[in-house]
Design a protein around this nucleic acid. Structure first.
Lengths: 215, 215
DNA sequence: TGCGTACCGTACCGTACGGTACTGTTGACC
DNA sequence: GGTCAACAGTACCGTACGGTACGGTACGCA
């Protein structure tokens, strides 16, 4: 089990124009509503544009989906974290922040809808939607968390050999069964309070496993 | 976040006849191969039966998918575990066994294909495939693991308040990012050795969090 | 031997949807 | 005002696929 080749899929291409953003937002809205099966007709109607324009801008259906996923991802990315001179409280706070924001993302209707489409598409080859979602979700957050973990280790607050393995444990403690249940249609509603307490529990468990008193 | 209403979906209806089982196996094979998009035509051709028979036996496409999921589930369920007079070694062994078999399931091509279809279907209402997969996967294993955890607590080997919460932590430690990565098409191959070491790590971590010396 | 049942194979139907073509209409620029 | 590009709206095409109908065959049963 070595590094996956999926991590450099972020390739933002050029940013969509405001009108194109409106179209992509329409597509997102339709996905999230989830009543109709996201047909090109439906997007065109919702966005008040012609199908011909859709095809001109995005090439084909897959291009539209790809652009939509990228557009959504571009709005989720947050700034990087400060990792120099880490103390225990700051480390805990950073991890808590990651856990909360990650839970908020995977519990959002947008994420569920996007992941459903990417997973469905990943079944039938000929589209890299799954890779894009992974690159902007799971792998993007891994690349942001691992420096924090490594800084924690450098500061003597954490002990682990491989930051990737440590992160995957953190990921499991935070996400548990939430994402698969939501993807499969379980009703499971996580409100803000539930997210906070889940995130806190995950962080405490992670620190119990990997933390050590600053020597 | 309370109990989900999905847990009594196992309703096995009557068992399929041998010929019907062959048809369902054909459907499974097609799903796993994943080249064509599991059309009724393809199933009929692969199973050497007529579409009319398919519709007569299973009602419609959704009925066929449902029967296929149930058929697969009926083969995965293993026997229950002995939970009386648990000692530390037996507890660890039981947990290890659960973790290994669960990892083997979610890493199998069959599980990935089935979950993909159920997730795709869960997007467009009108089908309870997702509920069935959940009931026979995540919830079924939960109902089998929780008695073991509770027996461990009764024997003074584990400490927790809520067995559901403890199980969800175990679930997260075992599965981590594996299922979502596979669903999204990541290549990630887990061989038997990888599964064993992953399972062992998860069990040790779980015991580090919830275990306590027998008083 | 005739009849009914269960089934395969295949032709067929209707519709949904991806993709294209055509006809305005608007607005920028000369 | 004339010209052109971009675009909305819509009609249209081809195909894939869910679902149905029907002819043909094998087999059990009287």
């Amino acid at each position: 089990m070595q590094a996956s080749p999926l991590r450099n899929e972020e390739t933002p291409t050029e940013a969509p124009s405001p009108r194109q953003q409106a179209v992509l937002d329409a597509a997102l809205t339709l996905m999230v509503e989830g009543n109709d099966p996201l047909t090109m007709d439906a997007v065109a109607r919702r966005a008040s544009c012609s199908k011909e324009t859709l095809y001109k801008w995005f090439g084909d259906r897959d291009g539209l989906l790809t652009a939509t996923v990228r557009w959504q991802a571009s709005r989720v990315h947050a700034g990087r974290y400060e990792v120099s001179g880490l103390d225990a409280a700051t480390l805990r706070e950073n991890l808590l922040d990651f856990a909360e924001s990650w839970l908020a993302v995977i519990a959002s209707r947008t994420s569920v809808a996007l992941n459903r489409i990417a997973i469905a598409e990943a079944g039938s080859r000929k589209s890299n939607l799954g890779g894009i979602v992974l690159a902007n979700g799971r792998f993007a957050i891994g690349e942001r968390v691992k420096p924090v973990l490594e800084a924690g280790r450098a500061a003597g607050l954490l002990a682990f050999e491989d930051s990737e393995t440590a992160f995957r444990t953190f990921f499991g403690l935070v996400g548990r069964d939430i994402q698969i249940r939501l993807l499969l249609g379980d009703a499971l509603d996580l409100d803000a309070a539930g997210i906070r307490s889940d995130a806190a529990r995950a962080v405490e468990q992670f620190l119990a496993l990997y933390g050590q008193a600053n020597p």
